[in-house]
């Protein structure tokens, strides 16, 4: 098992290095002279040349990449064109909000989606199953920005139960919880729906399997057959889905943050794109991609915990 995890971590590190290279190269070939951008419109040729040498922009590409890597190791992501603040600091302020939203959404997806899928499978072709299957189809089809707007209209404007946006309070306070409910529901609906569908089909498949029949032939209670013999097998395809879902949650968060006016890295990224703030765009992409890679490492480890066939490979 240690060998397997070691291999996964080595693979992850290689991916991360490849990622930094792609991000750096795209920054390098992006239009516009960074020195000029930093210096501002009133700077003289001399100022720009000085800044260029200070930033190391006059050095060869690979040397610059090396410098970029060493700055990354010191958590230096460069400076924002618009605010002239360190990007790392700006991201550090915003990332917790995004993570807050993503984690709340993934928890909601697990807690609601998986049980719903299992219940649908156990009640196959009955009313409960039909309701859940139809609801999950709707859930996958509804765009999250539309759902978010509708939720705000209903629960904030009409019923006045929950705030329409913001994420000012920490998540452990009641105000923080109230603030996260609507964006988390809007963001997780599609993931809940896909967990339900995959959970249902996975459960149906597992229930047909020989080892479930064996478990039943032992006369174990139905609860043990489901919880001990079926559930772990059901989780395998769901874990796969978890990795992909987390990626789409991060993507979805970018839009959901806009709808709910959350000061997260999604909003940060959108603003940076609108103002052609390249270092910010690239650093944010780097962070999001790195998170995605980390999650997938987690997924790989989770696999080996669930499935001994992977563990002993």
């Amino acid at each position: 098992m240690a060998k397997y995890i070691g291999k996964r971590i080595a693979l992850m590190l290689m991916l991360l290095i490849a990622l930094t290279f792609i991000v750096f190269a795209s920054l390098y070939i992006a239009p516009g002279d960074p020195a000029q951008m930093v210096a501002g419109p009133s700077a003289t040729e001399e100022d720009i040349a000085r800044i260029r040498s200070v930033l190391g922009l006059d050095k060869p590409f690979l040397v610059q990449y090396g410098l970029y890597l060493s700055r990354l190791l010191h958590f230096d992501l460069g400076t924002s064109y618009s605010t002239h603040q360190p990007i790392a600091k700006e991201i550090a302020i915003r990332l917790p909000n995004t993570l807050n939203l993503a984690v709340a959404s993934i928890l909601l997806s697990i807690v609601v989606g998986i049980p719903a899928g299992i219940v649908a499978a156990l009640r196959k072709d009955r009313l409960t199953d039909n309701v859940l299957t139809t609801a999950s189809l709707a859930g996958i089809s509804i765009p999250n920005f539309w759902l978010g707007t509708m939720l705000i209209y209903l629960f904030s404007v009409k019923l006045r139960w929950l705030p329409s946006g913001g994420m000012s309070a920490p998540f452990w306070t009641s105000q923080g919880v109230r603030q996260i409910v609507l964006p988390a529901v809007a963001l997780s609906t599609a993931t809940i729906a896909s967990f339900t569908r995959i959970g249902r089909s996975s459960m149906l498949e597992v229930l047909q399997s020989d080892y479930i029949r064996t478990a039943k032939s032992k006369g174990l209670s139905g609860w043990i057959v489901i919880m001990v013999h079926a559930l772990r097998n059901v989780l395998i395809p769901l874990v796969t889905q978890f990795g992909t879902s987390f990626g789409s949650l991060l993507g979805g968060a970018i839009i959901t943050e806009q709808v709910f006016v959350v000061n997260g890295i999604g909003t940060y990224l959108i603003n940076a794109i609108n103002t052609r703030n390249y270092p910010v765009v690239q650093s944010t992409v780097l962070i999001i991609a790195a998170m995605f890679i980390l999650i997938n490492l987690g997924v790989d480890i989770l696999y080996s915990v669930i499935d001994p066939r992977i563990r002993y490979d």
Partner: peptide
């Protein structure tokens, strides 16, 4: 169900799939 296993046990055709792979 309560009688299964204890009163009547069954050996199945496919030993490759009759045991739970994760336990």
């Amino acid at each position: 169900n309560a009688l299964r296993g204890e009163k009547a046990g069954m050996i199945f055709q496919e030993p490759m799939t009759a045991l739970n792979p994760l336990l």
